[in-house]
Simulated scan of single mutants.
Amino acid sequence: MRKVIASVYITLDGVVENPAWSAPFFNDEAAKFARAQLFAADALLLGRVTYQGFIQAWPSMTDEDGFAEKMNSMPKYVATTTLDTPEWNATFLADDVPAAVTELKQQAGGDLLVYGSGDLINTLLEHDLIDELRLWTHPVVEGTGKRLFSESSPKKTLQLIGTTTFSTGAQVLAYAPAAPAGR
């Protein structure tokens, strides 16, 4: 069974929108972590906004490490009800996204990696479809912007399963769903 791994850049105050603030904290350590994460995945699972941002940037990118080639060649599953012409190896999940992701998880293969896509992450959390949530926490207070969790986000208890600290002060905090009490 495949795992859904959600990986999101976030500020200390929970902002995930337009993560230009993350650039000063990205170094060789973070690049190595990001590469390992991407290469463990067989496909990307994206929300519409993230997909549209990525499709503007990634198809023209190249690098010597193979990261761009992997990003550009892997299948992408996109949660959208407004787009109708898939590009960039994409398949649109337009109707029942939780059912579609449940079906994808049951297929053989590597991880399904979610980048950004806050609304999609909240939907997947609500339906217990995220196996690991990796918060790339940056020592920045942005003040304004879209936050990952809102007042309408589903209540979930998670357990910390790992931390990775980079010399820049950024950390990846990895969480998994907490086991129900008594287990």
Rank of each mutant, 00 (worst) to 15 (best):
M1D: 09
M1Y: 08
M1F: 13
K3Q: 11
K3L: 13
K3C: 10
S7E: 09
S7F: 11
V8I: 14
I10E: 04
I10K: 04
L12N: 09
V15H: 03
E17H: 05
N18I: 07
P19Y: 00
P19T: 02
A23I: 08
P24A: 07
P24G: 04
P24K: 03
F25H: 04
F26C: 11
N27K: 08
E29V: 07
A30L: 13
F33K: 05
F33P: 06
A34G: 09
A36V: 06
A36W: 06
Q37M: 15
A40F: 08
A41T: 01
A41N: 01
A43M: 06
A43Q: 03
L44W: 01
L45S: 01
L45Q: 02
G47D: 00
R48M: 10
V49Y: 09
Q52G: 09
Q52A: 13
G53A: 09
G53H: 08
W58S: 07
W58E: 01
P59S: 10
M61G: 10
D63Y: 10
E64D: 15
D65W: 13
E69A: 14
K70M: 11
K76Y: 07
V78F: 03
A79V: 04
A79M: 07
T82Q: 14
T82M: 15
T82I: 12
T82V: 13
L83R: 03
L83C: 06
L83N: 02
T85I: 12
T85F: 08
W88I: 05
W88A: 10
A90S: 08
A90L: 07
T91Q: 15
F92C: 09
F92V: 04
L93Y: 02
A94W: 10
P98M: 09
P98D: 04
A99L: 14
A100K: 08
A100G: 05
E103F: 14
Q107L: 13
Q107C: 09
Q107P: 10
G109N: 05
G110Q: 04
D111Q: 07
L113A: 05
L113N: 02
V114S: 00
V114H: 01
Y115I: 00
Y115W: 10
G118I: 03
L120Q: 02
L120A: 01
N122T: 04
E126W: 06
L129R: 02
L129K: 01
L129C: 01
I130D: 00
D131F: 00
D131C: 04
E132P: 02
R134G: 03
T137F: 12
H138G: 08
V140M: 11
E142H: 13
E142F: 14
G143F: 07
T144D: 12
G145C: 06
G145K: 05
K146P: 05
K146L: 12
R147C: 11
L148Q: 02
F149D: 03
S152Y: 14
P154D: 15
K156G: 12
T157E: 15
T157W: 14
T164E: 15
T168I: 12
T168Q: 11
Y175P: 04
Y175D: 05
P177K: 06
A178V: 08
A178C: 12
A178N: 10
A179F: 13
R183L: 15
